[in-house]
Structure formats: C-alpha cells, structure tokens
Design a protein around this nucleic acid. Structure first.
Length: 417
RNA sequence: GCGGGUGUAGCUCAAUUGGUUAGAGCGCUGGCUUGUGGUGCCAGAGGUUGCGGGUUCAAGUCCCGUCACUCGCCCCA
C-alpha cells in the first residue's frame, strides 16, 4: 500500500452516488411499509455453517467467494454473502415462529470475494424482502409486485424486464435433473469446458450458459414443464395468473435457474441490459426447504434481494426541490449572531448552512453551488437596525425583515412549497 | 481463477517519430471590492507522470514485474 487506496472491490460514495444510494433505500423502505413489511436487521457475520448449509456447498458463493475467518476464540465466522440465510437463522434463534406469517425487509452490506466489475463489488449492498411461514402462491405474487412497485417508483421499470420460471418441488426437480443430465451427457463432447464441469455439479446451470454452442444444445434439451407434478404446476399457474391480474408484464424463461441450492418453485429475476455483464438487479424466489437445512421445522418461505449499487446506477436522481437557506454574515458580530439564528431555523425544520470561509462574493457563489433557494444576509448595518436581509436566490428579490421575525418568515416559505 | 484495455495536478484531459524547466480547463485559496450569486478581472497553491526494476546519451513515451481501475469469461444482486 504505497498510496492510501480503498480495498479492492470497495467504494467510497459521495455526492450524487451517495444520494442515489440513499434514495434506493428510502424508496424501498417506503414501499415495504405500504406492503406492511417490518424492518429487521441481522449481523453482517455469522457462524460459517449458516451459509454453507443453506446456500449449498457446490455454489461458487460458498466454495470460493466467502470471506471466512477465525476469530480470537477459534470460531469459524463468515462475512455474509447474502441476507436470507441470516434472517432464517434469526427466525429460528429468536422463536419468530410466533409471528408467522412473518413479513420482513432489510438492507445492508454483503461481501463476496469476486473479481470486481461494473455493478459488481466485493462489498456491495442489498435490499431484501422475505415472507416466512406462508405457502400460498399469492405470497410470491405479492413479493414480485412489491419489487415491481419499487422499480416503478425508482423510475427504472422501463429499463428492466421480469423473467420468471419454476424449479418445482424437489421430487419433480430431481426427475428433471436426471433427464437433463442424460441429455447433456450424450452431448458432453460438444459442451464448453465450463459446462462440462457443471454437468455433475449442477446441470441446471448449463441452461443459462452464455456459450453459443451450449445455447444451441439447450434448445433441444428437455424442458421442466414435462417433469413438473400437478400440484407444482398449479402453484406456478396461480402465480402467473396473479401477475396477469396485476398487469405486471413478465416473460417465461425456462432457462432461468438460480445459483443457490435453497430455491424451489417460483424463481424470478428483474434483468437489465444497461449494466454490462451484470444483468440481474432484483431477484429471488421460493425457498421452502431452507429452514430444514438449518435444523428447524419445515417452514415455507419466499423472498428476493436487490442490488442497491445496480439500482442506484439505473435510477435517475430527481432534482432537489424545497427550501434550502444559506446565512451570510459580514463581520464578527453578525457572524456570531448567525449561530443561534441558524440553530432556531433548523429546530423549526429548515435546512440551513452558515459558511465561514470566503468573502461575500465567494459565499454567494457557494450558495449557488449547493443549490440554495434563499440567502439570509446579516451585516453590521442590519444588525444595528435589528433587521436582516432575506433574498430569494431564484427570483433575485431581496427584502428586509425584522431579525426576530426570521423564523416566522422561513416557516412561511415551507408552506409555500 | 482466466483473457483484453487503461493508469499524467483534487477532477476531465494535453505533451510531435523517446529530446530542455510536464501544460490547459474546471475546482480550490487569496485579491480587485470584508456588502450581492448563478455570467468580470488578477494572482497563488497544487505533480518523485500508480509503484518497482530494466533498455538508452536521454523515458510520461519503449520493455518486464507489481498494484489499481475497466471490459469480457466465470459468478451473481
């Protein structure tokens, strides 16, 4: 480290980037509350088996991307690579069964040791929504609808598309997997090296390979619909009907597969082509077997996660409106007076700043630079007269008002907007 | 983990085929004018050209290594 550098794959956010990030979180919280989800927060590290057991040992996330370390007590801990396993663990640890069906939302940093790329970082942030303890397909629909509403309110619905598929129940999936393995085995010589490796690890993943040769083979591969049990098929139809009823557009993608072992039935992804190789912005599905893998009672669950960086990169940041006051004092006495005045204004709910550097002109320039709507000007003349100059920076009009009426004046601005 | 591209001031970029003291705009600081911005003028600060090594009389420029960013593979949000 010759120069002060951030750790590879981590970022420092400032200005528009930081504002866009914050906006994603606040719009998400607002939507989640309207769907009556409750906030939860779980630790950013867990005992390693929490992730290893739930996500599947064959997944790359667990096998080569986790930050695993031993703490001073000799325990193997892992920085969370995703949020669902931690929430499931919390559900069992704290007896949240008493609150089922539990609807919760969360957000925060996740960690994966990957090669950084556009939209892909080693510390990245996710928003997360989960419904635990409800097996009805309407739950899946509600979760997808919530994701769709979030994307709409962020202004990114137009640049994303919903893809959906079913992984069915474990028995159906096992039958499909056998058929798929047999098919690809017969064409193993034509598969890419990556897909040959996937053949015995996770043959479903071959379906979403980007290799042209693999894609050609996938066209004639068995499709899951022929292996789905009646019950699973009906479940999926109900989900699709629910989406139609809400006029949420979607595409059935029979090649859509999830990388994590705990998914079953509904899987979905909101994808975009605006982020290079990273096309998923929000995705999830049903994970009915997850709780049992953690040693808990059979408990259905469904949820999704969204990448905050990816959503923030797509969303446009709306122009800041509203009242923003900057106080300019000339002379030590006036400057000193602005400290209590700005405090009162802030207590009254206004956004106020008091610059301390630069001459008068520089301070006015700064007011523009930060997008202030009004300037309060206090000099020695005003101070002696018990007055203060109030200038509307958008119209250029300036008036003089009594110093002790400043808060009243500022409050009236708020109601105008 | 694998392959391609790129690293020059705080930011965006210049710098002939390797050739004197590496420049500009923006930003920053100060001043013109301790009192009026979004659109004036002047000045100043700020660089071991990512880092290390090599070739050469001479390297920002060529070569090797390394670190970081970036694009793709992979993986996934």
């Amino acid at each position: 480290m010759t120069k002060l550098q951030p750790v590879r794959g981590t970022r420092d956010l400032f200005g528009e980037e930081a504002a866009a990030f914050e906006r994603v979180v606040s719009v998400f919280a607002s939507v989640a509350k309207r769907f009556q989800f409750q906030p939860v927060s779980t630790p950013i590290f867990e005992f390693t088996p929490v992730f290893a057991r739930t996500m599947g040992g064959t997944s790359d996330v667990v096998s080569k991307e986790m930050y695993v370390f031993e703490d001073r007590g000799g325990e193997s801990l892992a920085l969370r690579p995703e949020n669902t396993a931690g929430i499931a663990r919390a559900f069992l640890s704290n007896g949240w069964q008493q609150h089922t069906p539990l609807k919760v939302y969360a957000y925060g940093p996740m960690f994966r040791y990957e090669r950084p790329q556009k939209g892909r970082y080693r510390q990245f942030h996710q928003i997360d929504a989960e419904v635990i303890g409800a097996a009805h397909p309407d739950v899946d629909v509600e979760l997808i609808a919530m994701g769709h509403m979030l994307l709409s309110e962020l202004g990114v619905a137009g640049s994303t598309a919903l893809e959906i598929n079913t992984l069915a129940d474990p028995e159906s999936r096992a039958r499909y997997r056998t058929a798929l393995t047999a098919y690809f085995q017969a064409h193993a010589a034509d598969l890419s090296a990556d897909s040959q490796a996937r053949l015995d690890k996770n043959p479903l993943r071959i379906l979403d390979s980007k290799d042209a040769g693999d894609c050609a083979l996938c066209k004639d591969a068995p499709i899951i619909d022929d292996y789905v049990s009646d019950e699973s098929g009906q479940f999926f139809e109900t989900v699709l009907d629910g989406l139609k009823g809400l006029s949420i557009p979607f595409t059935r993608n029979r090649q859509l597969v999830r990388g994590l072992d705990y998914y079953s039935h509904t899987v979905f992804e909101f994808v975009t082509d605006a982020l290079g190789a990273q096309n998923a912005v929000l995705s999830g599905g049903r994970y009915d077997g997850l709780m049992e893998q953690l040693g808990g009672p059979p408990t259905p669950g469904c949820g999704w996660a969204g990448g905050i960086e990816r959503l923030a990169a797509l969303a446009e940041v709306p122009q800041q409106e509203g009242v923003k006051i900057i106080c300019i004092g000339m002379g030590a006495a006036a400057q000193a007076q602005l400290l209590p005045l700005s405090y009162q204004l802030r207590a009254a709910g206004l956004s106020v700043d008091v610059p301390t550097t630069g001459n008068f002109k520089k301070r006015m320039k700064r007011a523009n630079a930060i997008g202030a709507s009004h300037a309060l000007i206090l000099g020695e003349d005003e101070l002696a007269a018990g007055q203060i100059g109030a200038k509307d920076l958008r119209s250029g009009e300036q008036q003089s008002l009594a110093l002790d009426k400043t808060v009243e004046w500022a409050k009236s601005l708020q109601t105008e907007h």
